[in-house]
Nucleic acid binder design. Structure first.
Lengths: 328, 328
DNA sequence: CTGAAAGCGCTTACAG
DNA sequence: CTGAAAGCGCTTACAG
């Protein structure tokens, strides 16, 4: 039979009470150095490890962070996942990974997170109905919307300053002497795509330049098809701002397919600065999202709210920067 | 205060005992339809949800699967993670995601998995010291080594039939009339890279062809650098078998950089069939790993072992197939 | 500083 | 089929 070593076993061997054993393994509790030493020795001998479930049952808190993610196709997100895992591990937290298929986080997923009484939740690229957010609020579980701008009094969200980025990209194109430009949008219901567009469009309007819009979906194939379509139309703009890198790669491939020179005939700027953007085949100029800063803000907020729940809402934005490569 | 609804609350409202409430939510227990209905109604009214921790404490089992992963840079693994998440969700299991930095899974990670008393463990691309495996065995926690061939009497491992794949790739090259070929290896301490090499080399030896070996590391940059080096050497083989796709993309980019025609001057075959292999920019011929079959075998084994632990070891291999594109 | 005891929210023999 | 009760392995007032 699987015999799990309990605090009781350790107590017996060390000749102390079970409470003292508990105190040694529960940070913040006080024990004399002498008994601590005895207990540590006994625990090591038996291979004792406190049972997380008993602990959680009584404290009503866990060391688990739920991460809800949809698009593992976009390398941006695995990258983010990795950084979260590393940051939370350092703080003693584990990651419950929830993958949603739909755009919207499913009731079932929320159920899971609630069942495990997660200490905090990060919602990454899925859209979440606000009723679902309320569910977490009711249970005083802090939630961060990552890479989304919510402008909500209810929830904390962290994103890159997409509006500013859109503006800067437009200005950069103008500085390069380009005035005929287009935007290829990502999923229309995402704040990221809308804000990048908004900033971009704003500057064009200021300069009285024509704004051209193409709808797409944040995928490689979406970018590829859109660019093929643009080329087929015959009226190719001399610069294209693509809402994310993975689409931009599709765009570049489509242009290459049509023997359209970049940056000669048209210039391309992406968004994210995923690893592939730096590959020799692409050398994509792009707007870098400061993942580390975004992750840091998320972790800090979550940890603070876990320590003392306030339900504070904020729309936190981090500045990114342009990485110039060979497509502009 | 956060008031969690307990079985007791539901019992009171429904006018039954707490045990009956428990029976309704614990599958396999029997309750009359009448009381079940009353309880369900009361539970819904109160928003009751059984506490997983209390449950786990008493049953000494969880519905959590630990997945240990290292290389999120290689898109193959996020893809795998997604499939596991989907498959286990269907079975009511959740995923505890553990990211290791080192090649070797760290003691700390094992500790975490053990603390949460996970029902099963999947070790994906990390190497694991056998002593660590013993730790799980001692606790009767089934472990699967995914994408690794162990040939161990101790552990279950599932991989693509890499030996066979290596052979088939070599034969394919010969069929194409090529006899000067090279292999670019991935991390040397992985069974995947060694087996692919072995099968490949075996056929070359049979045909008395020269075998050329280049060491690399399963990364894009590794592939790129290796190919640059090969070109610089001056004696480029007329076909290259690259141990995985992400390296093969690096190889293709390096060849392009040197204006070396593919498949004209040299042919390239990768391994995995990641999404990017099908991109127009690459159109990489590759050996497809049947992820779905590999995932299915893993899930089936784990579920069986969770139901009744036997500690059965097996080295399970799944056949892949060649996907012909434009690099051959 | 330490121990005895209550209790977290469940499951599960055991009676009835 | 149902309820009363024990107990899973912890934390945490409460005494001493």
């Amino acid at each position: 039979m699987k015999h799990t070593v309990t605090a009781k076993d350790v107590a017996k061997l060390a000749g102390v009470s079970q409470s003292s054993v508990s105190r040694v393994f529960f940070e913040g509790a006080k024990v004399s150095e002498k008994t601590r030493a005895k207990i540590i020795a006994a625990a090591e001998e038996l291979g004792y490890r406190p049972n997380e479930f008993a602990r959680s049952l009584i404290t009503n808190r866990t060391k688990i962070i739920g991460i809800v993610m949809k698009g593992v196709q976009n390398p941006f997100y695995p990258q983010v996942l990795k950084q979260f895992a590393a940051a939370f591990k350092k703080k003693g937290y584990s990651i419950l990974f929830v993958h949603t298929n739909n755009d919207e986080i499913e009731a079932e997923d929320v159920e899971t997170l609630l069942n495990y009484n997660v200490a905090g939740v990060i919602i990454t690229d899925a859209v979440m109905a606000l009723t679902v957010g309320e569910e977490f609020k009711k249970n005083k579980i802090p939630v961060v919307f990552f890479n989304r701008k919510l402008n909500s009094e209810e929830f904390y969200s962290v994103s890159c300053n997409n509006l500013d980025a859109g503006r800067k990209v437009a200005e950069y194109f103008f500085d390069k002497g380009v005035s005929e430009m287009a935007y290829i949008a990502g999923d229309a219901d995402t704040s990221t795509s809308r804000d990048r567009q908004k900033g971009f469009q704003e500057v064009l309007k200021q300069k009285k330049a024509r704004y051209r819009h193409y709808s797409s979906d944040y995928t490689y194939n979406g970018g590829f098809k859109t660019a093929m379509h643009m080329v087929a139309e015959g009226d190719l703009p001399s610069a294209i701002f693509v809402a994310n890198d993975i689409m931009a790669l599709g765009v570049l491939d489509a242009l290459k397919e049509n023997s359209i020179g970049v940056p000669g005939q048209t210039k391309v700027i992406g968004f994210d600065n995923i690893e592939m953007a730096a590959w020799p085949a692409y050398q994509l100029t792009t707007w870098e999202q400061p993942i580390d800063k975004m992750v840091h803000a998320t972790v800090t907020y979550l940890l603070e709210e876990i320590a003392e729940y306030t339900g504070a809402a904020e729309t936190f934005e981090v500045d990114g920067r342009l990485i110039e490569r060979s497509t502009t």
